[in-house]
Simulated assay, not measured.
Amino acid sequence: MNRDKLSCHDPEEEVLEMIWLIEEEGLEPTLEQIMAKNIHDAADMKMLERLVRGGFLRRDGEHFRFTESGRERGEIVIRRHRLAERLLVDVLSIRDMSFETTACRFEHVLTPEVTDHICTLLGHPRTCPHGKTIPPGPCCLRAEKSLETVVVRLSELGAGESGRITYISTADHHRLDRLSALGVFPGRLVRVHQSEPLFVIFLGETQLALEKEIVGEIFVIRNGRTDR
């Protein structure tokens, strides 16, 4: 991951993130491996010793391993970072390398409550834009118990169902402008009239036929059936 050297503000969390990434590669973290990932100069022997004293790491010879509390903290850091990446890519359509730098800045200011709200908004994604696993949080477990995802693609709604638009995931700014001109933008309540052969929705009393590709890029909070 190529991230700006000045973008991250918590050296302890950065080191825990490095160790998590090394373990994801199937390796047992050593000082040499940690330093190889030390993009932001967060890791040094003093920082590792500080994390050992703090009860987040333990040292076994040349290897550094998570304690239970260290793994919990590392999981929180990874979860925040990967959800920040998903938010930037899926909602804000930032797909160049700048999203890495921004996600690294963003992750350090997210509270647990805001993190769960972002996760719910995104529909509890399981992977980041790089395909890496996003550790589930309390909101994900609640969603599994309820057996229903709150935020879904508009294309998943059936005739008679409605939802409120939360975001539109597309990098095509002309498409966003066109949809906005038609009244399709976050906050609007939409009702599905039919899904085949054309996907037809109502915005208030206005009826629109949308292409299937576009419908798959519109995300809504499901409201249920509103047949009239």
Rank of each mutant, 00 (worst) to 15 (best):
Glu62Gln: 10
Gly55Val: 00
Pro11Asp: 11
Leu31Ile: 07
Glu23Asn: 05
Leu198Asp: 15
Met18Phe: 04
His130Tyr: 10
Glu13Gly: 14
Leu154Pro: 04
Glu72Phe: 05
Met18Glu: 10
Arg58Met: 11
Asp116Val: 04
Glu75Cys: 05
Pro129Asp: 12
His108Glu: 15
Asn223Pro: 02
Ala36Cys: 05
Leu51Glu: 00
His108Gln: 13
Val15Tyr: 03
Asn223Asp: 13
Asp90Pro: 03
Ala181Gln: 12
Cys119Ala: 13
Met45Gly: 01
Thr102Gly: 08
Gly74Ser: 10
Phe219Glu: 06
His124Glu: 09
Gly74Arg: 04
Gly183Tyr: 02
Thr30Met: 00
Thr102Ile: 15
Val184Trp: 02
Gly74Met: 08
Phe199Trp: 06
Thr67Gly: 00
Thr30Ile: 01
Ile168Trp: 04
Arg164Gln: 15
Glu24Thr: 04
Ile78Glu: 13
Cys140Gly: 06
Phe64Tyr: 13
Asn38Tyr: 00
Arg153Pro: 07
Ser7Asn: 11
Gly131Met: 08
Arg79Phe: 00
Glu217Leu: 10
Val114Cys: 06
Ala181Trp: 06
Arg175Asp: 13
Leu121Ser: 05
Asp172Glu: 12
Gly224Phe: 00
Arg188His: 05
Pro112Gln: 08
Phe202Pro: 05
Val77Met: 03
Leu51Ala: 01
Lys5His: 11
Thr30Glu: 06
Leu189Lys: 15
Ser93Thr: 08
Glu49Ser: 08
Asn38Asp: 09
Gly26Asn: 07
Met35Val: 01
Leu21Asp: 15
Leu27Glu: 14
Gly61Phe: 00
Thr133Gly: 01
Phe64His: 03
